[in-house]
Design a protein around this nucleic acid. Structure first.
Lengths: 126, 126
DNA sequence: TATTGACTTGGAGCGAACTTTAAGTGATAT
DNA sequence: ATATCACTTAAAGTTCGCTCCAAGTCAATA
């Protein structure tokens, strides 16, 4: 697969994919005889995985660490597990913040709805 | 209240609070006769509100728009409601991404646990 | 009186994650 | 043959959200 095919498949720009390779958060991609990237199944799975992690906000630097550990093989399994657990905790924290904010937005939206219906007296606060 | 008191209260740096004022995502803060910021209750509520929104990742630019509408008074209520609904949708989307990633992390962590216990054969994938 | 310390300002600097640019190669279509 | 197109590289540029700096003011303390 060429970079533009992969780009379409995962809805990432070709530039982003090249950047990910340069940064080492996906493994080095094979080239054809004339230097053009040729993506295989495995590389695609990595891209898909990285995309998912990035969508949730995991940092490039962390993902780089994960890939580095991965490359070092089976002996880094404990470390990899710890890294993932740490990221899980960060996501749980994020989830809490988002839930708190959603509650707040819902309250406000409701308040505005009531205002529109003339149900509330006018008493504005942030 | 001085800026350093507010800074402690909300665990934001004084620089960040000044930046928020400069950007207009909190209302202009009153000054004492010699130019020092003097935060009142209302401004504090704004800071708390903005902090919550920022924690969930709402953009400065969006919050600026909200504050601008707010300043224009009651006639912008419909617009404000729409803005908040849009942000709510974005947060719901984010929530979905985080949940998907959490599921995936949980699976992986479990896999690593099983590996450690020697339960699984060695078959690595991203 | 001198100095300490908290504040003020405008503006420069920074890290993260891309994104764009410039210059080039090589296969295919007209 | 020549032009078009997708690709290549290294490096510079961009955006966001702060964060830091220099130079200055003012009030309180040694």
């Amino acid at each position: 697969m060429t970079i533009s095919e992969v780009s379409k498949k995962y809805n990432l720009t070709a530039d982003t994919i090249r950047y990910y390779e340069k940064e080492g958060i996906i493994p080095r991609v094979q080239r054809t005889k004339n230097g053009i990237r040729d993506f295989d199944e495995n590389t695609c799975s990595w891209i898909e995985f990285i995309k998912c992690m990035r969508n949730a906000g995991l940092e490039i630097e962390i993902l780089k660490q994960y890939v580095t550990l991965f490359k070092q093989g089976i002996r880094t399994i404990k470390e990899r597990k710890m890294l993932l657990e740490e990221q899980r905790n960060k996501l749980l924290e994020k989830q809490k913040n988002i839930n708190a904010t959603l509650d707040r937005l819902n309250q406000k939206i409701k308040w505005y709805e009531d205002m529109e219906k003339g149900k509330k007296d006018f008493m504005e606060n942030p």
